[in-house]
Amino acid sequence: MPLFRRYGAGRTLVHRAATLCFVGSLLALVAAAPVRAADRLIWALGDSLTAGYGLPPADGFTNQLERALRAQGVAAHVANGGVSGDTTAQGRARLLWGLRGLHAKPDLAIVELGANDMLRGLPPTQARANLEVILAELKRRRIPTLVAGMRASPNLGVPYVRQFDAIFPALAAKYGARFYPFFLDGVAGNRALIQSDGLHPNARGVRIIVQRMLPHVRRALGAPPAR
């Protein structure tokens, strides 16, 4: 099923998300839970899907991922680096600021950006260039990275879809990052798992995203497989 049923409506919702949640997302970055000395530090750099748009903080992606890791015996803190409405260019612009704000080198960075570029119909070459800068900098700092891929809406046309979808596996391979093919895998197209805006996962949807991504996160951290 198509990821986004109405491109125009989706674009409007993205702009609303940016307006309504930008301040809230920044506050979440500042008010992140303290990191225990023994915790592994994971930084999730992304947009509204990472930020937890439309959800109580406890139900957002980073908090659910942290709880799932701890339930499997992995002591980790997942720092929320998501800002609703962010494009790859905006993620790139705040990369260094975000890393400085962690006050420690992360054990893993999860990069989840690109959906807003696609919803706005921005050139895939632009998204690729921005993501390349982000991944190159993380590699330069020797920060293990997991790239969470995104897929373009089919109504953007076959050439756009092919070019956009190819960005994520190609850059992950180029920069030696681990790759998770589709952040919304198992959720996109299922109305029971999506909020009323038709774009963002609800708490159940986030739970499925976390369950599917969890083995990839564990491997990226070098943690043994869950029993």
Rank of each mutant, 00 (worst) to 15 (best):
A115P: 12
N116T: 13
E137L: 00
L108N: 13
N116I: 13
D117N: 15
G98F: 07
R140S: 14
H103P: 04
I134M: 01
I134S: 02
L119R: 10
D107S: 05
I143N: 01
A152M: 08
G149H: 04
N116H: 10
A109G: 09
L156C: 06
R128C: 13
P159N: 05
E112A: 11
V158R: 15
L138D: 01
R142C: 05
V133T: 07
T145Q: 04
V133F: 00
P123K: 15
W97H: 11
P144F: 01
P106C: 08
R140T: 12
E137Q: 05
L108M: 10
D117Q: 14
R151H: 10
A104C: 05
S153V: 06
P144G: 07
L99K: 06
K105N: 06
P106K: 10
E112V: 08
P154Q: 05
R120D: 15
A127F: 12
H103K: 14
S153F: 03
G121S: 14
V158A: 13
G98C: 01
K139H: 07
N130K: 08
L131T: 04
L99Q: 07
V111A: 03
G114W: 03
L135R: 04
L113I: 11
R100C: 06
L146R: 03
R140I: 08
T145L: 01
G121K: 14
M118S: 15
L131I: 10
L108A: 05
A129Y: 12
A127C: 06
L156H: 02
V147F: 08
L146N: 02
G157A: 07
N116G: 09
N130S: 07
A109V: 13
L156A: 03
L131N: 09
L99V: 09
P144T: 06
V147L: 06
I134D: 02
Q126H: 15
A148E: 09
V111E: 04
P124V: 14
P159H: 10
A136E: 02
A148H: 02
A109S: 09
A127R: 10
R100G: 03
